[in-house]
């Protein structure tokens, strides 16, 4: 295999990796504020694509349709937390996780019912031929994906580190009781983190739609990959989730290059299992310390 060809696989890996990273960020946000895994995260990815297509077909300009897709999905995320999870918030993590699984089924079925079973797509954000770079062809949409991922990570880091609300979010992720004693409305923090997680998932789902198409059933795979990426990097740490996403995308792509495309989708599961066995805190994450 020539080096240009290998490089092409690396580019492809980072392309999927950026998607996984955005989905993983959603897992990380919700895990941070609630301690639960939101198995409906993949459906936010799906809704982002399907709803953007819907708005685009209504006649909205592409970027406006995309924005509307993100905002509507964020609304679904907020409503899901408020209506399905908050009423049972004292029920324990297992119950809440099962509610998210149920929620994912409901979102999927309703989407199929409302928008139909067919695959759909969006035009590329900036149509045009791929850009040749060092013997490698990079699709313009891939640049959008990377750009959006970088912006999302920077925005989240800024929110976490520099804002009063981000400080409250971090406090919540450490102890709800202690956060409430500070006067933090933990219920609101949890709801907002669902909204943000949904927006990030939607962003990934619609940005990749021009490359892969979307449909009511694309959420499960995206969710699984994003979950594996979040675990690989280390749950609860935004930067780690992004690195986890990129590494996972790269591993998948290299497995296609050196093994066979048959194993591509198994890679995420294998990575998930290996990490959980050998390094449950993830590549970047530190072992959970005793809270002081």
């Amino acid at each position: 295999m020539g080096s240009a060809e290998l490089l092409q696989y690396v580019v492809a890996g980072f392309k999927s990796g950026a998607i996984y990273a955005l989905v993983a960020l959603g897992f990380t946000l919700v895990y941070g504020s609630t301690g639960i895994i939101n198995f409906a995260q993949g459906e936010f990815f799906m809704l982002g694509g399907v709803l953007s297509v819907f708005y685009y077909r209504l006649g909205l300009p592409l970027l406006l349709a995309a924005l509307a897709g993100v905002v509507t999905t964020a609304g679904v995320g907020l409503a899901f937390e408020r209506l399905a999870l908050r009423p049972r918030r004292d029920a324990g993590a297992l119950v809440l996780i099962i509610i998210t699984i149920g929620g994912s089924m409901v979102m999927k079925s309703l989407t199929r019912h409302i928008f139909g079973p067919d695959e759909a797509t969006l035009p590329e954000f900036t149509p045009g031929p791929s850009i040749a770079f060092g013997g490698v062809a990079i699709e313009r949409q891939a640049l959008w994906l990377w750009g959006l991922t970088i912006v999302a990570v920077l925005a989240l880091t800024w929110l976490y580190r520099k804002t009063r609300f981000g400080r409250a979010m971090r406090a919540c992720s450490l102890s709800h009781d202690a956060a409430r004693l500070m006067g933090i409305d933990t219920a609101r923090v949890v709801m907002v983190s669902f909204g943000l997680a949904a927006a990030l998932g939607a962003l990934a789902g619609l940005a990749v739609t021009p490359l892969t198409q979307t449909a009511w059933d694309v959420g499960a795979t995206a969710g699984m990959k994003g979950f594996a990426a979040a675990i690989l990097g280390g749950l609860g740490n935004p930067v780690a989730s992004v690195i986890g996403g990129l590494v996972l995308g790269l591993l998948e792509s290299l497995s296609v290059a050196f093994l066979s495309s048959t194993y591509k989708d198994a890679i995420a599961l294998i990575v998930l299992l290996i990490v959980l066995f050998l390094r449950p805190q993830g590549l970047i994450g530190r072992a959970r310390r005793e809270k002081v």
């Binding site: 971090r170 202690a178 002081v292």
Partner: peptide
């Protein structure tokens, strides 16, 4: 037990 936010 003080309940400080340890990593912060």
């Amino acid at each position: 037990g003080r309940m400080l936010f340890g990593p912060m």
